[in-house]
Amino acid sequence: MSRSLKKGFYVYPSLWKKVLDAQQSDSRRPIRTWSRSSVITPEFVGLNMEIHNGKSFFPLHVTENMVGHRLGEFALTRSFRGHQSHTQKK
């Protein structure tokens, strides 16, 4: 179920401030955030983000196509490298 339009989009308030600052000052420095549930708004486009995936920060350059998605959708939290091979095991 999608969020009620009445409430508007959600962006973590202090992140929002940083985004607006970065947009104004044309900052290239990535913005670090843990707020994976924040929605990417048009203001984010062109910024460099670093999104926490539970362990480290995942670098992301925001493009126009990403608007409307949440930051966490791009930083995967699991690393599946295939099942263990049982051949060496005796």
Binding site: T63, N65, M66, H69, G72, E73, F74, L76
Partner: peptide, 12 residues
């Protein structure tokens, strides 16, 4: 295609 192009979880 868009979901896959932006490397989103859903696209993957």
């Amino acid at each position: 295609k868009r979901l896959q192009a932006i490397q989103s979880y859903r696209g993957m």
